[in-house]
């Protein structure tokens, strides 16, 4: 038994979700190798080799991997599996991992397992269905397991590894019918919603998009990301990509502060795994208080600025 972790990186440095994926890989037992595929990615590979638990780093440096397109990366992963007979292939359940691993699995004729939250054994995994409203334990029967893991469910691996670097198998990557054009990452200093340690989230109680400034001010104090409920998005207060919930993003930060959010099930599904939930709402009967560790029944327009001021 051995595991290949597909590292996510930007050529210069490895993304933190890879550290969570490596921890998941070590829980399986067996040797852990990491594939670092990119263009000009030697630095990222060096970093990966130093992560605790990594025995081997397969380096695939090729211009064809620019933009990390699944069409280009899939052949090198499939070929690596064939050469080293990995029993498990793991990546973080990020946009990268979720886009790539199912394609790899199909090429290996394997049913992939998405967003695993717990590893019970080499073939037994736990994941949530219905946006976290039910928890499924399943046994995968395919000989190779292709898994993405939820980053918030596994600790980040530390450093202290001394992985051996070697070249990934050579594959000819031609005829890729997709082309990377550009990437536009949100230009702000705030962390991403899905990896933020603290999230301030606003609902219909904010009454307008302008009032979201109250949340941004608080977020700046706490180094937090800002999210929203579907009701706030539907009301046009903020962009759709801030939406947390069943049809939006699933988050599990250490601290989640729900402001003016009533707590519809669709919203709770997206945030109830947060470690500490704070609710600020003027309606004492709002369902959000049923899941909140700390509830403050108050007018948010007074409470939030006061909180920001006192931190």
């Amino acid at each position: 038994q051995s595991t290949l972790v597909v590292a996510e990186h930007d050529n210069a440095s490895v993304r933190s979700i890879t550290l969570n994926a490596i921890t998941a890989a070590t829980k399986l037992g067996g040797e852990v190798s990491c594939l670092v595929a990119g263009s000009g990615c030697a630095k990222a590979a060096e970093q990966v080799a130093k992560i605790a638990g990594v025995k081997k780093v397969l380096l695939a440096d090729n211009k064809a991997f620019e933009g990390f397109l699944p069409e280009a990366l899939t052949p090198v992963i499939v070929e690596s599996q064939k050469q080293f007979k990995f029993t498990h292939i793991i990546a973080g359940a990020s946009a990268f991992g979720k886009g790539l691993l199912p394609r790899v699995a199909a090429k290996l004729d394997v049913q992939p397992i998405s967003e695993v939250t717990e590893i019970k054994g080499a073939d037994t995994f736990v994941r949530t269905i219905y946006a976290g409203n039910a928890v499924m334990t399943l046994k995968a029967s395919d000989p190779i397991k292709v898994i993405t893991v939820r980053g918030t469910s596994f600790e980040a691996a530390g450093d202290g590894g001394s992985g051996v670097q070697e070249k990934a198998p050579d594959v000819s990557i031609s005829d890729v019918k997709a082309q990377f054009v550009k990437q536009e990452l949100a230009k702000n200093d705030r962390p991403e919603l899905t990896s933020a340690k603290v999230i301030i989230s606003g609902g219909r109680g904010l009454k307008s998009g302008d009032n979201f400034k109250l949340l941004y001010d608080l977020a700046d104090k706490l180094g937090a990301a800002v999210g929203a409920s579907r009701a706030a998005v539907d009301a046009g207060f903020c962009a759709n990509d801030l939406q947390i919930g069943q049809t939006g993003k699933i988050v599990a930060p250490e601290l989640y502060i729900a402001v003016g959010i009533s707590g519809a099930i669709q919203h709770l599904a997206g945030m109830k795994d947060s470690k500490t939930i704070v609710a600020i709402n003027k309606d004492p009967d709002a369902p959000i208080f049923q899941v909140a560790d700390l509830g403050l029944v108050a007018d948010l327009f007074k409470a939030v600025p006061e909180l920001t001021g006192k931190l």
């Binding site: 394997v110 049913q111 397992i113 037994t124 949530t128 269905i129 976290g132 409203n133 039910a134 928890v135 499924m136 334990t137 399943l138 046994k139 995968a140 029967s141 395919d142 109830k272 939930i277 704070v278 208080f289 049923q290 899941v291 909140a292 560790d293 700390l294 509830g295 403050l296 029944v297 108050a298 409470a303 006061e306 909180l307 006192k310 931190l311």
Partner: peptide, 28 residues
Amino acid sequence: TPRIQVISVEDPPVREAGQKVDDVDQLI
């Protein structure tokens, strides 16, 4: 032919409501 076997489907761990705080100072 199924590729997985469902061992169990269960309710997620219930999240108990915590406590109400009186004001912002207590929350902090």
